[in-house]
Design a protein around this nucleic acid. Structure first.
Length: 679
RNA sequence: GGGCCGGUAGCUCAGUUGGUUAGAGCAGGGGACUCAUAAUCCCUUUGUCGGGGGUUCGAGUCCCUCCCGGCCUACCA
């Protein structure tokens, strides 16, 4: 086989938050692929970096009273240690905030300029006079401009109540979520890349060959490429944490411009350290470039990024591998349910190998979401890894500790040869990121090996000294079959491969070692290679995950400031203002689904006696109608009725939370009765 | 509303270009073994392959239609 030259990247984690198990799907998936390529003898490097620029980092650094540099340095150290805990081994882990990146950005920029793709446009944007910065859509909230809706407290780009989309400048009574000040409209000149000029190229690139999974190519075609591509707003005015654009003082490259270039800057750093030629990686048709990303950033990696690379004359991605999100127990990860598991939390309680194997057994080449089902997790790891695979070594190694492996490989009725042949199929599955198929094939081999040991019964052979040779032969076969599996699993379980190498005095270094039996080597004393998963450890991990957000004792409560940051306190009001709002205890009398509505439930609320209100509440995704009936809730009883698509709503229910499944209604303690006013 | 993916045994899934009585693992039941991390081995139960129509000598596999679930979108990057 000729050696391939492969550069692999995983998406750059943003320096604003810690790594959680959702992130790990990608880094583990990528790590497996890279380890596989290396094991096959290919030249392969795994490049990543922290993504450090943008408004969010700037604002957080301000709030924490320190420099951006200090913040991102701390985050990067945390990220790298989290990855190390999961045996994710990068060849280089850099940062987008590096001189190498600045230089490369400038190189891209002049190429894109030279290609005539840049144009200036004046746009109107909201500006926070108190903080002195322009506000991205998500930092503005206000009343929905749809006259039929007028829902308060909506985000800057769309209304969650009526679904209107608009520009933040259209909001009525907009408020900056940073300072609470009312923003003013200011004009600013932004730089845009005219992506439409690359339309034909992108069309061809996306449709031709194997650059993308077919469903992704299809999606891009249907969503973007059937019409002219919009200009891409690539600059942000100062102040902005990032790189200033050399020929446009006061303007900075938008974080999504410099982030993917970070792949290359990180490669550059690696090259400098290893005396490698950068151009042989990024300007070399022989080199393959593989990006692994989540489906949320498809757009940037499949349209802008190839466009940028094309314009600047670099290698285009050979393939962009896109994966889905992680769910836990079939649902989106949720802090309140304890299923939002941080990488560090997992690592404190469970072994990384479990998760690597579990993910591998579930990952296919498509972008479906992947579910972490904890019962399945325990069953898979314990029965597949411990029960089937490791058991092979565990039950045979001790019999040959004195004598080692036989000098010639005995007749095993074709077991080894069969497994060697299947190896090609397994390799093919790895190559195509179809890890679940690879794991299935490997377990089928394990299922053939154990019956062999069973029928050969080494534990009987050892009782008869005359059968010493037969005993050694049987164990030589069992251990070789085991070693084959360890080689096939090596990309997923590097630790198992290492321990297998130690046990048999022969390190696993190449995939093709699975084709040739190992003979005549000493066998070390067998030590457990992996403990079984204990369900109680999972319970502890879940507990710890819940505790982080829902502490039970008030002594050491440390609530996050995220919510206040996202939505600062409103302007002061007087008691007179407050009494205008008539809050009442109400009982849910009926609750029914509104079939055509995405978010609404229709409730009848009783205020005692015959006083009732019909209220449409946006809690459909968080509550079932049946669970609501009889419940006491808090409502705004004197709210002006509003006509909605499905009827008139005569009030609103008080609830907190960001929306979606995370909506939490206010309850009242026992003793309060419907109709009572809340003072 | 549009797009994509999926609906096969209690659970997780495999079923290659349509071809014989539809499979595996796990779970369940029975037995064996006791070398092994209560691991292993043998035997064993279970399916209107989402519903309905069609093409065909023959359909889980192709076509149409409907139902259900997930994801993405809703003139927005």
């Amino acid at each position: 086989m000729t050696e391939r030259k492969i550069l692999v990247t995983a998406a750059l984690p943003y320096a604003n938050g810690p790594i959680h198990i959702g992130h790990l799907v990608e880094y583990i998936q990528t790590d497996i692929w890279v380890r596989f390529q290396k094991l096959r003898g290919n030249r392969c490097i795994y490049i990543c970096a922290d993504d450090t620029h943008g408004t969010a980092i700037m604002i957080r650094a301000r709030q924490e009273g320190r420099s951006e540099a200090a913040l991102i340095a701390e985050m990067q150290a945390k990220h790298e240690s989290a990855f190390a805990n999961f045996e994710i081994e990068f060849d280089h882990y850099g940062s987008t905030n590096s001189e190498e990146n600045r230089t490369l950005c400038a190189e891209f920029w002049s190429a894109i300029r030279a290609a005539g793709l840049v144009k200036e446009k004046e746009i109107e944007q909201l500006f926070d006079p108190q903080e002195g910065i322009f506000l991205a859509d998500r930092f503005v909230r206000g009343t929905c401009p749809n006259p039929k809706c007028s829902a308060p407290d909506q985000a800057g780009d769309n209304c969650t109540v009526c679904g209107w989309t608009y520009s933040p400048a259209d909001l009525i009574k907009p408020v900056s979520t940073l300072s609470g000040a009312s923003p003013e409209v200011r004009k600013a000149t932004h730089l845009f890349i005219e992506l439409e000029k690359l339309h034909e190229f992108l069309d061809t690139w996306i449709q031709s060959g194997e650059h993308l999974q077919p469903e992704v190519a299809n999606y891009l075609q249907g969503h973007f490429l059937h019409k002219p591509l919009r200009d891409w707003d690539i600059s942000r005015p100062a102040p902005y944490f990032g790189f200033e654009i050399p020929d446009s003082p006061g303007n900075y490259w938008y974080v999504w411009f410099d982030a993917p270039i970070g792949y290359m800057a990180s490669t550059q750093q690696w090259c400098d350290r290893h005396q490698e030629d950068f151009d042989s990686w990024w300007r070399n048709q022989e080199t393959e470039i593989h990006h692994f990303i989540g489906k949320d950033i498809t757009y940037f990696h499949t349209l802008f990024w190839p466009g940028m690379l094309k314009s600047a004359g670099f290698n285009l991605p050979t393939k962009v591998h896109i994966h889905g999100f992680l769910t836990v127990g079939g649902e989106k990860m949720s802090k309140s349910k304890g299923t939002f598991i941080m990488a560090d939390t997992y690592a404190r309680h469970l072994n990384a190998s479990y998760l690597r194997y579990y993910f591998a057994s579930k990952l296919g080449s498509r972008l479906d979401d992947l579910d972490l089902n904890l019962d399945e997790f325990v069953a898979k790891v314990n029965s597949d890894l411990i029960g089937k695979v490791i058991n092979l070594a565990s039950r045979s190694a001790k019999f040959v500790k004195q004598v080692g492996l036989s000098n010639t490989y005995p007749n095993d009725q074709g077991l080894f040869e069969h497994a060697a042949k299947i190896g090609d199929e397994i390799a093919n599955a790895y190559e195509h990121c179809d890890y679940s198929r690879a794991m299935r094939l490997i377990m089928e081999l394990a299922d053939r090996a154990n019956p062999f040991v069973e029928s050969a019964a080494p534990w009987n052979l050892r009782k008869n000294p005359e059968k010493a040779q037969e005993l050694q032969d049987v164990c030589t076969i069992a251990l070789n079959l085991f070693r084959q599996l360890a080689i096939y699993l090596a990309p997923v379980l590097p630790d198992l491969a290492k321990k297998t190498g130690e046990l048999l005095s022969s390190p696993i270094q190449d995939w093709d070692e699975s084709k040739q039996p190992l003979t005549g080597t000493p066998v070390r004393k067998f030590k457990h290679m992996l403990q079984r998963v204990e369900p109680k450890d999972i319970d502890k991990m879940m507990e710890e995950s819940s505790e982080q957000t829902a502490p039970t004792s008030s002594d050491d409560v440390q609530d996050s400031s995220d919510w206040l940051d996202a939505e600062p306190l409103a302007e002061q009001c007087t008691i007179d203002d407050f009494v205008k709002v008539d809050l009442r205890v109400a009982r849910v009398l009926t609750a029914e689904d509104v079939p055509d509505a995405n978010k609404l439930l229709k409730l009848t609320l009783g205020l005692g006696g015959n006083e009732q209100r019909t209220v449409f509440a946006g809690i459909k995704s968080a509550y079932k109608p049946a669970d609501l009936v009889g419940k006491k809730v808090v409502m705004v009883a004197n709210l002006a009725p509003r006509k909605m698509k499905f009827g008139i709503s005569e009030g609103m229910i008080l609830a907190a939370g960001p929306g979606g499944q995370e909506v939490f209604m206010l309850g009242v303690d026992d003793g309060a009765s419907p109709g009572q006013r809340i003072h």
